[in-house]
Design a protein around this nucleic acid. Structure first.
Lengths: 142, 142
DNA sequence: GAAAGATGGTCAAGCAGCTTGACCATATGT
DNA sequence: ACATATGGTCAAGCTGCTTGACCATCTTTC
């Protein structure tokens, strides 16, 4: 039953390495939770409430997180087309750059796995994980 | 490159499900971080400083965590044989029961994976993860 | 074997990120 | 039109972590 522990250890390591890679590429003051937010904002933006659901926190917490990434220049609030109450949070160019940096860092770690396992097994790993992955909100904390 | 995101989603889900399972088995007031501590204490106990290294936090934080699990009856502090400064933190019977509950909950989740993937692929998954798992401290937070 | 430094642990204060609760502005349903 | 639901903010408080200072004991060095 070491599967759980091993999986969590790998996940913790991955998170850590991505974070280090992002910092090494010059993006300071950004935490892993921001990465999860960026992933939700990336396609076309989202509302603060969307983010709250996605991250599994209250909308107040999501709003504060938005404050922070706006203040740091990673995103901006725009009026929401079609709902005057809401605001559409979208990534700035810097936000996109940071997202790309995270993807590069992640790819680097996965490349390391490829060196150990071989490409075929990495693909197999992805396939297996994809079939057991949940649909609901991403939970970046425990 | 969805591997990273998928892995983290699975890990988040696993953590969540284990936590729910532990609560459902009657252990209240225990957080996932405690589970990581229990895993370190389980074999023969450990010192607070050992725990701090294992969890990747300061020794003060580890000491507070120990305070908490002692207060809640999951562990106790004993004099350390051979070092009068140190204390050996060991699980109580309740601590062991909680650890077993977590293992049961984890096994339940893994069983669900077996239903989807088949036993062979679950074993393959374990093998692959074991080969890329890190050695250092477990990082229960991101 | 005594002095000097390293190590295990605690106390205290502060901070960051989250929560709950109250509230306003706008949408939506009847 | 009115009542209710929803997106968002403000404010206060809590929890878990940090840094900094300190004591007790172990270990190293002379």
């Amino acid at each position: 039953m070491a599967l759980s522990a091993t999986l969590l250890a790998v996940a913790g390591e991955l998170t850590q390495r991505i974070h280090e890679g992002v910092v090494a590429r010059g993006f300071e003051g950004v935490r892993p939770a921001h990465g999860f937010a960026f992933a939700r904002l990336a396609p076309d933006g989202a509302t603060a409430t969307d983010l709250a659901v996605h991250l599994g926190v209250t909308k107040q917490a999501a709003s504060q997180l938005v404050d922070e990434i706006v203040r740091k220049g990673y995103a901006e609030r725009r009026p929401h087309p079609g709902d005057a109450r809401a605001r559409l949070i979208v990534l700035t160019e810097r936000g996109w750059a940071c997202t790309r940096a995270a993807e590069e860092a992640a790819a680097e770690v996965v490349r390391g796995w490829g060196d150990v396992l071989g490409e075929g097994e990495v693909r197999a790993l992805l396939g297996q994980l994809a079939r057991i992955a949940p649909y609901g909100p991403i939970r970046p904390a425990w």
